[in-house]
Lab assay of single mutants.
Amino acid sequence: MTFKLIINGKTLKGETTTEAVDAATAEKVFKQYANDNGLDGEWTYDDATKTFTITE
């Protein structure tokens, strides 16, 4: 399955995708991506669209 991450950061904005077997796996990938890029914010997830959002 394809999951999307929408980034609404103070300095970084955009989106990225990952292929994962489930939402929990995708969340780990996206949280590592956010950590690697210095993002810290509030996370939301929409199961209907398989989309995570981080807002700083």
Rank of each mutant, 00 (worst) to 15 (best):
D36L: 11
T53P: 00
A20V: 05
E27F: 15
K28I: 10
E19Y: 14
F52W: 06
D22P: 01
F3L: 02
Q32E: 09
G38N: 12
D36C: 07
D40P: 04
T16R: 15
Y33W: 15
D22S: 06
K13Y: 13
T51S: 05
K10W: 08
N37T: 06
N37A: 15
I54P: 00
D40T: 15
N37Y: 12
T16V: 14
E56R: 04
D40S: 14
I7H: 04
T2F: 13
T17A: 08
A23M: 12
K10H: 11
Q32M: 10
T2R: 12
E15F: 11
D22H: 04
K50N: 11
F52S: 00
Y45F: 06
I54K: 01
A48L: 13
M1V: 14
K10T: 13
I54T: 02
T53A: 05
T17F: 15
I7K: 02
A23S: 13
K50P: 00
A26F: 01
K10L: 11
K50H: 12
W43S: 01
T2L: 12
T16G: 04
L12P: 05
A23V: 12
K50E: 03
N8I: 15
T2K: 11
A24C: 09
N8C: 08
A34T: 07
A23R: 15
D40V: 13
D22V: 03
A23T: 07
N8F: 12
D22K: 03
G9Y: 10
D22I: 03
N35K: 15
E56N: 06
V21G: 11
F30V: 01
N35L: 12
L12K: 09
E42I: 14
T44K: 09
D46Q: 04
T49V: 06
T51I: 07
E19G: 05
V29P: 01
Y45G: 00
V29C: 06
L5H: 00
Q32I: 10
D40N: 12
E56D: 08
I7S: 03
I54C: 05
V21C: 07
T18M: 11
A48D: 13
W43G: 00
T18D: 02
L12Y: 13
G14Y: 14
E56C: 07
K31V: 07
A24L: 12
K4H: 13
F3N: 01
T44G: 10
N35G: 07
T16A: 13
E42Y: 12
K4T: 14
L39D: 01
E42Q: 09
T51A: 05
M1F: 12
G14L: 14
T44Q: 11
K10N: 11
T18F: 10
T25S: 14
T17H: 07
A24Q: 12
F3T: 01
T44C: 07
D46M: 04
V21H: 15
K4P: 01
A20C: 07
D40W: 14
L39N: 03
Y45S: 01
I7R: 02
L39H: 05
E27Q: 10
L39G: 02
N35D: 11
L39Y: 10
T11Y: 12
G41A: 03
D36I: 09
F52E: 00
E56Y: 09
K31Q: 07
E15T: 13
D22M: 03
D40Q: 15
V29T: 12
T18P: 01
A34G: 04
E15M: 13
T55N: 11
I54E: 00
T49M: 07
A23I: 12
V21K: 09
Y45P: 00
K13N: 09
A24P: 07
K50T: 04
K13C: 10
F3I: 02
V29S: 06
D47M: 09
G14I: 15
N37F: 09
A23Q: 09
K28Q: 12
D46H: 06
V21N: 10
D46R: 03
D22E: 04
V21Y: 14
M1Y: 15
G14Q: 13
T51K: 03
K4N: 06
W43V: 03
E15A: 10
I6Y: 05
D46G: 02
I7C: 05
K10R: 13
D40R: 15
D46K: 03
D40E: 15
A34R: 02
T51F: 03
L39P: 02
A34V: 12
N35F: 15
Y33S: 02
F30W: 02
T53K: 05
T53V: 09
D22F: 03
A48K: 10
D22G: 04
T11A: 09
E15R: 05
E19Q: 13
M1C: 08
A48H: 13
N37W: 15
D40M: 13
F52V: 01
E56M: 14
E42A: 09
E15N: 07
T51L: 03
A20I: 02
T55E: 07
G14M: 15
I6D: 03
K28G: 09
A26V: 02
V29H: 15
F30D: 00
D36V: 12
G41K: 01
G9Q: 06
A20F: 04
G41S: 02
D36N: 09
E56I: 14
V29A: 08
I6M: 06
K50L: 09
A26D: 00
A26L: 01
N8Q: 12
G38D: 09
I7L: 08
Y45V: 02
T49A: 07
D36M: 10
T16S: 07
F3C: 01
K50S: 06
E27Y: 15
E19H: 09
E56G: 06
Y45N: 01
N8T: 08
Q32T: 12
F3V: 02
E42M: 13
Q32V: 07
T16Y: 15
M1R: 08
T11W: 13
K10I: 13
T51N: 03
K13R: 12
E27V: 05
N8P: 03
W43H: 01
T16F: 13
A48I: 14
G14W: 15
T18Q: 05
F3H: 03
K4F: 13
T53D: 03
D46P: 00
V29D: 05
T17W: 15
T16Q: 14
L12M: 14
D40Y: 14
F30E: 00
V29Y: 15
A24G: 09
T49R: 07
A26H: 00
K13F: 10
N37I: 15
T44I: 08
E19M: 14
G9F: 15
T49W: 04
D40L: 15
T18R: 05
K10M: 11
A23W: 09
V29K: 11
T49P: 02
I6H: 05
T25D: 15
E15D: 07
T53F: 12
F52R: 00
I54R: 00
F3G: 01
A20E: 04
K13Q: 12
A34M: 06
T44H: 10
K50A: 06
N8A: 09
I6E: 04
T44S: 12
T55C: 05
I7M: 07
A34H: 01
L5C: 05
K28A: 12
I54S: 01
T17E: 09
Y45L: 02
L39T: 03
L5D: 00
V21F: 12
K10F: 12
T2D: 07
F30A: 01
T2C: 08
D47G: 11
K31D: 02
I6F: 05
G14H: 11
G38M: 09
T17Y: 14
A23N: 05
A26G: 02
T17K: 09
T55K: 05
I6N: 05
E27L: 14
T18Y: 11
L5S: 00
G41M: 03
A20M: 03
T49Y: 05
V29F: 15
W43A: 01
W43P: 01
T25C: 07
A24N: 08
N35Y: 15
T49I: 08
Y33A: 02
G9T: 15
A20W: 02
E27T: 04
F30I: 01
D47A: 10
W43F: 05
T2M: 14
A26E: 00
K50I: 03
D46L: 04
L5P: 00
T16N: 05
Y33T: 03
